[in-house]
Simulated scan of single mutants.
Amino acid sequence: MFFIKLCDIMEEQMFESPRREKNQMRFSFIKSLFHVVEDIGFNDNEIEAAEKKWGILPGVLKDYYKQLGKHDRINKSQNYLREPKSLYESGNYVIFYIENQGAAEWGIKIEDLCKEDPPVYCRLAADKYALETDNLMEFFNAMTLFQAASWGMTYSCEEIYMISEEQAVKIRGKYKKLPFELHQWCEMSFYANNEDEVIMLMINDDYDLLYGSEDEEHFKLIEEFIETIEKDKY
């Protein structure tokens, strides 16, 4: 009997270790962007208490809370991640992220809470919810890029710049487009040549431009390039 029990424990540990390593790799893009080397998140008890309230929570959301949930520059530079205990229901959605002035909120359908990596929906003011991203991972990557560009990084531009389509074309020609975007609240795209930097273009008549980096040299290179294009300040 003891041998059977021991085998069960060994088998559980054997499969648990690869799962844990895989979950730790989920947010490698965000961790590289902000030079995160250890978990800065909520403890298991806090996350389990929230899961008990809702019955179940998506695996990606739980892992995000545990690994990155208490990193203020990632989660509070402009918009705000709701803490596990502060998740709330709005219609048929559980809200986990809000715009800093309450103009928008992002949530998961209650019926999707059982999914590992469910779609994310956005609502503006009294509007209906609309699909923001196909999954949570895509949302967290895109929102983190927004937070990073919005003065969340160690080295950040001091102003919001206004540029034309002509100048935006120059940025697209110099920097690689990242595969994450936000569309419902604001239309924005992101660019970079290094894993710890971001340039954000936000559609606003023409474009609003913001940028930053965790690396001083990479930031200086972006600044030198930005100085070569025509731009206005707000």
Rank of each mutant, 00 (worst) to 15 (best):
A104N: 05
F27W: 09
E99G: 05
Q13W: 10
G212K: 03
E159A: 13
E216M: 13
Y175W: 10
Y97K: 08
S77A: 11
Y211I: 03
K62D: 04
E89G: 12
W54Y: 12
S17W: 07
P119D: 02
T133F: 10
A148K: 02
M153D: 01
S150P: 10
T228H: 12
L178G: 05
F225C: 03
E12V: 00
S86N: 14
Y121S: 06
E166T: 01
L81F: 04
D39M: 07
D8M: 13
V94W: 06
S77C: 11
K176D: 05
T144Y: 06
E181D: 13
L209D: 00
S86M: 10
E214I: 03
Y80W: 08
E12C: 10
K176E: 05
D39S: 15
W151E: 09
T133K: 04
E105H: 12
Q13M: 15
V198S: 06
M153E: 03
P118W: 02
K62F: 11
K115N: 04
P84H: 04
R20V: 04
R82H: 03
E187H: 03
A130K: 14
H71T: 00
V120A: 06
L201G: 02
I110N: 01
Q184F: 03
F34I: 05
P18C: 07
Q78A: 12
L182M: 13
F190D: 06
C7N: 06
E116H: 12
K233R: 07
M162E: 03
I199A: 09
S189G: 13
I203G: 15
A148V: 05
Y234T: 01
F96A: 04
P84N: 05
Q167E: 15
D8A: 14
C7L: 14
D206V: 01
S90E: 06
E166Q: 11
N193H: 06
K233Q: 03
K53W: 07
K220N: 08
F139T: 02
R82P: 11
A149Q: 01
W54S: 05
W151V: 02
D44N: 11
Q24C: 11
L201H: 01
I171S: 02
S150N: 12
F190C: 13
K52Q: 10
E116M: 13
E187V: 00
L210H: 02
Y65W: 14
D44C: 11
K62A: 06
L136Y: 01
S77W: 01
Y129H: 11
E166R: 14
G173L: 11
T228E: 14
N79Q: 07
Y191N: 04
